[in-house]
Every structure is written in C-alpha cells, then in structure tokens.
Amino acid sequence: MTLVLNRMLRHEVILGVLLVAALIVLAGQSEHFWTADNLLNQGRLMAEVGLIALPMTFVIVTGGIDLSVGSIFGLSAILLGVFWQNMGLPLPVAMVAAILVGGIAGLGNGFIITRFKVPPLIATLATLALYRGLAEGISQARSVRGYPDWFFGLGQGEVLGVPSQLWIMIVCFVIAAFILGLTTFGRTTYAIGSNEVAARFSGLKVDRAKLLIYGASGLIAGLAAVIFVSRVSTTRSDMGTGLELDVITAVVLGGTSIFGGRGTVIGTGLGLILMQALKNGLALSGVKGDGTIVVIGAVLIAAILIGNLLSRDGD
C-alpha cells in the first residue's frame, strides 16, 4: 500500500520541485510577479480551467477523456443568458438551471459511453460538435448582456481579500481530493482505470461510477461557465472554445496517466499552478505569447519523460 502511494507521490514531488524552481526563476525575471495583487489575480484567471480539471482528473484516471467540456461550457453560458433574458426567469434560478443543463449534458456523455460502449474519445468528440452547435443555434449567435451588479460579485468580486471564485475552487479541490484519495468511490475510479474488466468482475458498479464522473464533469463545466460569464459580463456562444486542451494539459502535466489508473488531485493542482505561473511569469518578463506556448509544450514533454523514466525504475 505504502509502496503504491510512494510511487504515486513521486511525480507530485518532482512537479513540486519544478514548480518551486519555476517560481523562483520567474520572480527573478520581473518584480511584478511575486506580488499579492498579481498572484490573487492569477488565481482568478485560472479558476475556470482549475474547476474543470478536477472532474477531468477522475475521467482520465478511469482511462477516459472528455473533449466536450469546452462546448458544455459554451452551452451553459449561453443558456444562462437565454433563461434569464429571453425566458424571464429570475437570475439565481437561471444560474442553477444553466449549471444543471451542464450536468445533463455530461450525463448524456456518460450515457453514450456506458450504454452504447462508444469509446470516450469518439463520444465526446461528437458531443463537442453537438453541444457547440446547440449553443450557436439557441443563441442565434447573439450576446446577452446587462446583468445586474450583484451578479458580478461571483466573477469579479472578493471575499476576505481573495477572489470569490478562488474560494469556490479551493472548496471543490478539497472535496475532489477527498473523494479520489480516501473513499470507496475513489478506489473504484482507480480500479476502472487499471483494469476495467477486472473491476467489473470484482462486482464494482463500473457503469454507475462512469456515469457519475461524466455527469460531474458536465456539471462543473456549467459552474465554471457561470463564473466566467460573471467575470467577463457577457455571454457568447463561442465561449470556452479550446478550453478542453488547457484542462487536459493541466491534468496530464499533474501526472495523471492518459492510460488510466494513475493520478492525483494534488498533482492536477500543481500542474495547473505551474502552467498558469509560466503563462503569467513569462508574459511579465517580456516573452511574447507564441514563446510562452513553446515553453509550456516543452515543460509538458519534460515532466512526462521524467515521470516515465522514474516509474520504469519503480517497476
């Protein structure tokens, strides 16, 4: 047991060292980097990707993938506006409804994957197009604007000096870490990813677990969408295009194996922070956008190579 835990933690330790090194270097490059103002602001900017990365960790640990989160994000965002402005629902009800639609969209993914045995890559590739198309069709590509001021508290406001959405992300992070690390459901998730057939024959409720995980993925994408709308104060049907790639990058950088069975929420958190720190720190020290993408790609490959080398030694 401790052996397994050790091996899983090893990648996180490497990542932690890498992160500390990156933070020190970046702080040396720009005096603006290591300021409370900037760090809190970065927390605000990464909250959406961070939230969606949590259920994505579960998804990838089961050996699956969810490419549709960006489209669900766009669909929930646009429905928030439609529910509120076109259908006249009170804004709090519209917010809950938009998040629930995200959950339903996620359950739709889970249903297709478990019921029809469609590989997750294909199923969510299809719904990536489907949900985005619905978002554009429903919204008629019109933006919804003019939300009341209290609504912006969620995406632009602060609680005790810390951006509101950062609190939400921290709470979700703790819950996700608890579920994956310390509950039967978490063990089931690892079991599915390690060997799905064996998990099935061990009497684990594989399909139910998968359905819940993909549902949660959609639900959190919906939540992130509401936060994002509050942050940028408008809805557009093209919101969240390409978001899935940022999310998957953070998760994989965090040491979750794309083949399933291995990964932790803490790793995802570290991967996310490393990615955001690089983006922000490099921009502040004068590296242009295209250069930043190159560095992130290189770091991703390096982190995975190191992880692979070490896990081979461990075997």
């Binding site: 900037n38 900017l45 604007r145 940028v232 557009r236 921009a283 956008g289």
Partner: peptide, 29 residues
Amino acid sequence: NIDQQVSFLDNYITSGVNGILFAANDPVA
C-alpha cells in the same frame, strides 16, 4: 479568443505599461 485576450491584457497591466492599444474580440467582455 476573448478569454486569452483578457489574460494578455491583464498581464501587461501588471507589468506596468503606460498605454494600451487594442482591437476587441468582444466589446463587452
């Protein structure tokens, strides 16, 4: 992409420029 454009602007504000020129991907966002 409006999300990325906002991040770029945010970083340049932090880095302390004196002036910003922009072409918006979305007028409200």
